[in-house]
Design a protein around this nucleic acid. Structure first.
Length: 292
DNA sequence: CTCCAGGGAGCCT
DNA sequence: AGGCTCCATGGA
Protein backbone atom coordinates (compact mmCIF):
# COMPACT_ATOMS: atom_id res chain seq x y z
CA UNK A 1 0.00 0.00 0.00
CA UNK A 2 1.03 3.58 -0.43
CA UNK A 3 1.74 5.60 2.67
CA UNK A 4 1.69 9.22 3.61
CA UNK A 5 1.57 11.67 6.45
CA UNK A 6 -0.50 14.77 7.13
CA UNK A 7 1.11 17.11 9.69
CA UNK A 8 -1.38 18.28 12.28
CA UNK A 9 0.13 21.74 12.51
CA UNK A 10 -0.85 22.25 8.89
CA UNK A 11 -4.53 21.92 9.80
CA UNK A 12 -6.41 24.89 11.26
CA UNK A 13 -7.41 23.54 14.65
CA UNK A 14 -5.66 20.19 14.25
CA UNK A 15 -7.49 16.88 14.23
CA UNK A 16 -8.69 14.52 16.95
CA UNK A 17 -9.02 11.45 14.73
CA UNK A 18 -10.47 9.10 17.34
CA UNK A 19 -13.14 11.51 18.54
CA UNK A 20 -14.10 12.48 15.01
CA UNK A 21 -14.64 8.85 14.03
CA UNK A 22 -16.15 7.62 17.30
CA UNK A 23 -18.47 10.51 18.17
CA UNK A 24 -21.51 9.04 16.44
CA UNK A 25 -21.29 10.97 13.17
CA UNK A 26 -19.94 8.15 11.04
CA UNK A 27 -20.31 4.40 11.29
CA UNK A 28 -18.23 3.55 8.25
CA UNK A 29 -14.82 3.13 9.91
CA UNK A 30 -13.43 0.08 11.68
CA UNK A 31 -10.96 0.27 14.54
CA UNK A 32 -8.13 -2.22 14.11
CA UNK A 33 -8.54 -3.77 17.55
CA UNK A 34 -11.96 -5.02 16.49
CA UNK A 35 -13.57 -3.60 19.58
CA UNK A 36 -17.14 -2.49 19.39
CA UNK A 37 -16.38 1.12 20.26
CA UNK A 38 -17.51 0.45 23.81
CA UNK A 39 -13.90 0.68 24.98
CA UNK A 40 -11.50 3.59 24.72
CA UNK A 41 -9.13 3.48 21.74
CA UNK A 42 -5.36 3.46 22.04
CA UNK A 43 -3.89 6.91 21.25
CA UNK A 44 -2.37 5.58 18.03
CA UNK A 45 -5.17 3.18 17.06
CA UNK A 46 -5.59 2.46 13.35
CA UNK A 47 -8.93 3.09 11.68
CA UNK A 48 -9.86 1.74 8.26
CA UNK A 49 -12.60 2.24 5.73
CA UNK A 50 -13.26 1.33 2.10
CA UNK A 51 -14.22 4.05 -0.38
CA UNK A 52 -14.93 3.23 -4.02
CA UNK A 53 -13.01 -0.02 -3.69
CA UNK A 54 -9.95 1.57 -2.11
CA UNK A 55 -8.78 0.74 1.40
CA UNK A 56 -7.91 3.75 3.53
CA UNK A 57 -6.19 3.34 6.87
CA UNK A 58 -5.31 6.19 9.22
CA UNK A 59 -3.97 6.75 12.69
CA UNK A 60 -2.47 9.45 14.80
CA UNK A 61 1.28 9.24 15.05
CA UNK A 62 3.08 11.89 17.06
CA UNK A 63 2.16 15.22 15.47
CA UNK A 64 0.74 13.87 12.24
CA UNK A 65 -1.94 11.69 10.74
CA UNK A 66 -0.23 8.69 9.18
CA UNK A 67 -2.07 6.83 6.43
CA UNK A 68 -1.82 3.69 4.33
CA UNK A 69 -3.99 3.16 1.29
CA UNK A 70 -4.43 1.36 -2.01
CA UNK A 71 -4.66 4.84 -3.53
CA UNK A 72 -3.23 8.28 -2.87
CA UNK A 73 -5.35 8.98 0.20
CA UNK A 74 -4.17 12.50 0.97
CA UNK A 75 -6.96 14.34 -0.83
CA UNK A 76 -9.47 11.64 0.05
CA UNK A 77 -8.78 12.06 3.76
CA UNK A 78 -9.06 15.82 3.42
CA UNK A 79 -12.50 15.25 1.95
CA UNK A 80 -13.77 12.52 4.31
CA UNK A 81 -12.63 14.31 7.47
CA UNK A 82 -13.13 17.89 6.23
CA UNK A 83 -9.52 18.73 7.01
CA UNK A 84 -9.81 22.10 5.29
CA UNK A 85 -12.42 23.36 7.77
CA UNK A 86 -11.01 26.17 9.91
CA UNK A 87 -11.95 24.98 13.41
CA UNK A 88 -10.84 28.10 15.34
CA UNK A 89 -12.84 30.29 12.97
CA UNK A 90 -15.88 28.02 13.29
CA UNK A 91 -15.61 28.08 17.06
CA UNK A 92 -15.17 31.83 17.21
CA UNK A 93 -18.28 32.35 15.09
CA UNK A 94 -20.40 29.98 17.18
CA UNK A 95 -22.82 30.98 19.90
CA UNK A 96 -21.13 32.42 22.97
CA UNK A 97 -22.60 30.55 25.93
CA UNK A 98 -21.13 28.27 28.61
CA UNK A 99 -22.42 24.97 27.19
CA UNK A 100 -21.15 25.65 23.68
CA UNK A 101 -17.82 27.02 24.90
CA UNK A 102 -17.30 24.02 27.17
CA UNK A 103 -18.14 21.55 24.39
CA UNK A 104 -15.72 23.14 21.90
CA UNK A 105 -12.98 23.36 24.50
CA UNK A 106 -13.27 19.82 25.82
CA UNK A 107 -13.30 18.18 22.40
CA UNK A 108 -10.94 20.40 20.45
CA UNK A 109 -9.91 18.91 17.13
CA UNK A 110 -13.15 17.07 16.47
CA UNK A 111 -14.34 17.60 12.89
CA UNK A 112 -17.58 17.01 11.05
CA UNK A 113 -17.23 14.10 8.65
CA UNK A 114 -18.20 13.95 4.99
CA UNK A 115 -19.39 10.37 4.58
CA UNK A 116 -20.16 8.67 1.27
CA UNK A 117 -23.90 9.09 0.78
CA UNK A 118 -25.40 5.61 0.79
CA UNK A 119 -23.48 4.36 3.81
CA UNK A 120 -24.47 7.46 5.74
CA UNK A 121 -28.11 7.04 4.73
CA UNK A 122 -28.26 3.42 5.88
CA UNK A 123 -26.38 4.21 9.10
CA UNK A 124 -28.87 6.83 10.19
CA UNK A 125 -31.93 4.85 9.10
CA UNK A 126 -30.57 2.23 11.52
CA UNK A 127 -29.95 4.84 14.21
CA UNK A 128 -33.63 5.21 15.14
CA UNK A 129 -34.10 4.39 18.84
CA UNK A 130 -30.63 2.84 19.00
CA UNK A 131 -27.60 3.47 21.15
CA UNK A 132 -24.52 4.71 19.36
CA UNK A 133 -22.52 1.58 20.25
CA UNK A 134 -25.16 -0.63 18.68
CA UNK A 135 -25.30 1.45 15.50
CA UNK A 136 -21.58 0.72 15.06
CA UNK A 137 -22.29 -2.99 15.54
CA UNK A 138 -25.18 -2.98 13.09
CA UNK A 139 -23.14 -1.33 10.33
CA UNK A 140 -20.27 -3.78 10.96
CA UNK A 141 -22.75 -6.64 10.66
CA UNK A 142 -24.12 -5.23 7.40
CA UNK A 143 -20.60 -4.94 5.97
CA UNK A 144 -19.76 -8.49 7.07
CA UNK A 145 -22.91 -9.93 5.52
CA UNK A 146 -23.28 -7.82 2.38
CA UNK A 147 -20.12 -5.79 1.81
CA UNK A 148 -17.68 -6.64 -0.93
CA UNK A 149 -14.29 -7.89 0.23
CA UNK A 150 -11.16 -5.93 -0.58
CA UNK A 151 -7.76 -7.42 0.21
CA UNK A 152 -4.67 -5.31 0.77
CA UNK A 153 -1.33 -6.43 2.21
CA UNK A 154 -2.83 -9.78 3.15
CA UNK A 155 -5.72 -8.32 5.13
CA UNK A 156 -9.34 -8.35 4.12
CA UNK A 157 -11.56 -5.31 4.46
CA UNK A 158 -15.28 -4.99 3.89
CA UNK A 159 -16.85 -2.21 1.90
CA UNK A 160 -20.16 -0.57 2.68
CA UNK A 161 -22.90 -2.72 1.08
CA UNK A 162 -24.08 -1.42 -2.26
CA UNK A 163 -27.72 -0.43 -2.85
CA UNK A 164 -28.10 -3.50 -5.08
CA UNK A 165 -26.83 -5.82 -2.35
CA UNK A 166 -29.21 -4.48 0.30
CA UNK A 167 -32.12 -4.35 -2.13
CA UNK A 168 -31.51 -8.03 -2.88
CA UNK A 169 -31.51 -8.97 0.80
CA UNK A 170 -34.75 -10.18 2.30
CA UNK A 171 -36.37 -8.40 5.20
CA UNK A 172 -35.93 -11.57 7.27
CA UNK A 173 -32.20 -11.60 6.46
CA UNK A 174 -31.84 -8.04 7.69
CA UNK A 175 -33.86 -8.73 10.83
CA UNK A 176 -31.47 -11.58 11.64
CA UNK A 177 -28.68 -9.00 11.81
CA UNK A 178 -30.56 -7.30 14.63
CA UNK A 179 -31.99 -4.41 12.64
CA UNK A 180 -35.47 -4.97 14.09
CA UNK A 181 -38.22 -2.86 12.57
CA UNK A 182 -35.63 -0.87 10.61
CA UNK A 183 -35.04 -3.85 8.33
CA UNK A 184 -37.79 -3.03 5.82
CA UNK A 185 -36.78 0.65 5.90
CA UNK A 186 -33.24 -0.22 4.86
CA UNK A 187 -34.41 -2.59 2.17
CA UNK A 188 -36.97 -0.20 0.69
CA UNK A 189 -34.59 2.75 0.70
CA UNK A 190 -31.91 0.60 -0.93
CA UNK A 191 -34.46 -0.33 -3.60
CA UNK A 192 -35.16 3.35 -4.27
CA UNK A 193 -31.46 4.03 -4.87
CA UNK A 194 -30.85 0.81 -6.81
CA UNK A 195 -33.78 1.47 -9.14
CA UNK A 196 -32.77 5.07 -9.67
CA UNK A 197 -36.16 6.31 -8.42
CA UNK A 198 -34.48 8.40 -5.68
CA UNK A 199 -30.73 8.92 -5.61
CA UNK A 200 -27.99 11.07 -4.16
CA UNK A 201 -28.26 13.56 -7.01
CA UNK A 202 -31.97 14.04 -6.20
CA UNK A 203 -31.21 15.11 -2.64
CA UNK A 204 -28.16 17.28 -3.35
CA UNK A 205 -29.80 20.69 -2.97
CA UNK A 206 -28.11 23.93 -2.05
CA UNK A 207 -30.82 24.74 0.47
CA UNK A 208 -30.96 22.67 3.66
CA UNK A 209 -34.73 22.54 3.89
CA UNK A 210 -35.02 21.48 0.26
CA UNK A 211 -32.50 18.72 0.88
CA UNK A 212 -34.34 17.62 3.99
CA UNK A 213 -37.66 17.42 2.17
CA UNK A 214 -36.08 15.38 -0.62
CA UNK A 215 -34.35 13.04 1.85
CA UNK A 216 -37.68 12.32 3.52
CA UNK A 217 -38.64 10.54 0.31
CA UNK A 218 -36.58 7.61 1.57
CA UNK A 219 -38.23 5.09 3.89
CA UNK A 220 -37.20 5.38 7.51
CA UNK A 221 -36.09 8.97 7.02
CA UNK A 222 -37.93 11.72 8.87
CA UNK A 223 -36.80 15.21 9.86
CA UNK A 224 -34.06 14.09 12.26
CA UNK A 225 -32.45 11.42 10.10
CA UNK A 226 -32.67 13.74 7.10
CA UNK A 227 -30.76 16.40 9.03
CA UNK A 228 -28.09 13.85 9.96
CA UNK A 229 -27.54 12.87 6.32
CA UNK A 230 -27.58 16.51 5.27
CA UNK A 231 -24.92 17.33 7.88
CA UNK A 232 -22.68 14.27 7.76
CA UNK A 233 -22.78 13.52 4.03
CA UNK A 234 -24.18 16.42 2.02
CA UNK A 235 -22.14 19.25 3.51
CA UNK A 236 -24.99 21.20 5.09
CA UNK A 237 -23.04 22.53 8.05
CA UNK A 238 -26.10 24.49 9.16
CA UNK A 239 -28.16 21.33 9.76
CA UNK A 240 -29.04 20.69 13.42
CA UNK A 241 -30.46 17.20 13.97
CA UNK A 242 -32.97 17.41 16.83
CA UNK A 243 -32.40 14.11 18.60
CA UNK A 244 -33.36 13.35 22.18
CA UNK A 245 -30.11 14.79 23.54
CA UNK A 246 -30.41 18.08 21.71
CA UNK A 247 -34.10 18.39 22.46
CA UNK A 248 -33.49 18.05 26.18
CA UNK A 249 -30.57 20.47 25.88
CA UNK A 250 -32.94 22.96 24.26
CA UNK A 251 -35.44 22.55 27.10
CA UNK A 252 -32.75 23.05 29.70
CA UNK A 253 -30.43 25.62 28.12
CA UNK A 254 -32.38 27.31 25.31
CA UNK A 255 -36.07 27.16 26.34
CA UNK A 256 -36.91 30.17 24.17
CA UNK A 257 -35.95 28.07 21.12
CA UNK A 258 -38.53 25.38 21.90
CA UNK A 259 -41.37 25.46 19.38
CA UNK A 260 -44.37 23.28 18.52
CA UNK A 261 -42.91 21.80 15.35
CA UNK A 262 -39.56 20.33 14.35
CA UNK A 263 -39.17 22.82 11.53
CA UNK A 264 -39.71 25.85 13.76
CA UNK A 265 -37.51 24.58 16.59
CA UNK A 266 -34.86 23.80 14.00
CA UNK A 267 -34.94 27.33 12.66
CA UNK A 268 -34.76 28.80 16.17
CA UNK A 269 -31.81 26.72 17.36
CA UNK A 270 -29.94 27.23 14.09
CA UNK A 271 -30.26 30.96 14.58
CA UNK A 272 -29.10 30.63 18.19
CA UNK A 273 -26.09 28.46 17.38
CA UNK A 274 -25.04 30.76 14.56
CA UNK A 275 -23.11 29.96 11.36
CA UNK A 276 -22.15 26.30 11.00
CA UNK A 277 -24.78 25.45 13.61
CA UNK A 278 -24.33 21.78 12.75
CA UNK A 279 -20.76 21.91 14.01
CA UNK A 280 -21.97 23.33 17.29
CA UNK A 281 -24.73 20.72 17.49
CA UNK A 282 -22.22 17.92 17.02
CA UNK A 283 -19.92 19.25 19.73
CA UNK A 284 -22.82 19.69 22.15
CA UNK A 285 -24.24 16.25 21.32
CA UNK A 286 -20.92 14.53 21.91
CA UNK A 287 -20.26 16.59 25.03
CA UNK A 288 -23.59 15.68 26.60
CA UNK A 289 -23.65 12.05 25.46
CA UNK A 290 -20.20 11.28 26.83
CA UNK A 291 -21.17 12.85 30.13
CA UNK A 292 -18.35 15.33 30.09
C1' DC B 1 -39.50 -6.97 36.02
C1' DT B 2 -39.53 -2.15 33.59
C1' DC B 3 -37.41 1.47 31.03
C1' DC B 4 -34.80 3.42 27.37
C1' DA B 5 -31.99 4.13 23.07
C1' DG B 6 -29.08 10.06 17.78
C1' DG B 7 -37.41 8.23 15.38
C1' DG B 8 -40.51 7.11 11.84
C1' DA B 9 -44.57 4.86 9.47
C1' DG B 10 -49.33 4.33 9.30
C1' DC B 11 -53.63 5.93 10.46
C1' DC B 12 -56.70 9.06 12.41
C1' DT B 13 -58.89 13.68 12.89
C1' DA C 1 -50.64 19.70 9.49
C1' DG C 2 -50.81 17.63 14.06
C1' DG C 3 -51.63 13.80 17.36
C1' DC C 4 -51.66 8.92 18.66
C1' DT C 5 -49.90 3.90 18.53
C1' DC C 6 -46.90 0.56 17.31
C1' DC C 7 -42.59 -0.94 16.09
C1' DA C 8 -37.47 -4.99 17.50
C1' DT C 9 -33.68 -5.54 20.22
C1' DG C 10 -30.29 -5.53 23.88
C1' DG C 11 -28.51 -3.39 27.99
C1' DA C 12 -29.13 -1.25 32.57
Amino acid sequence: MRTGSIPLDGLAGGLDLATTIESGQTYLWTRDDGETYATAPAPDAWYSTVVDGDVVRARRRDDAIEWESTTDADSLLHELLRLDDDLPAIRDAAADDPLVADAYERHAGMRIVDDPFFGCLVSFICSAQMRVERIFEMQASLREAYGESVTADGRTYRATPTPDALAAATEADLRELGLGYRAPYVKRSAELVASGDLTESDVRRDDLEAARDALKGFVGVGDKVADCVALFSLGHLDAVPLDTWIQSAIEEHYPDCARDSYAETSRAIRERFGPNAGYTQTYVFHHLRTGA
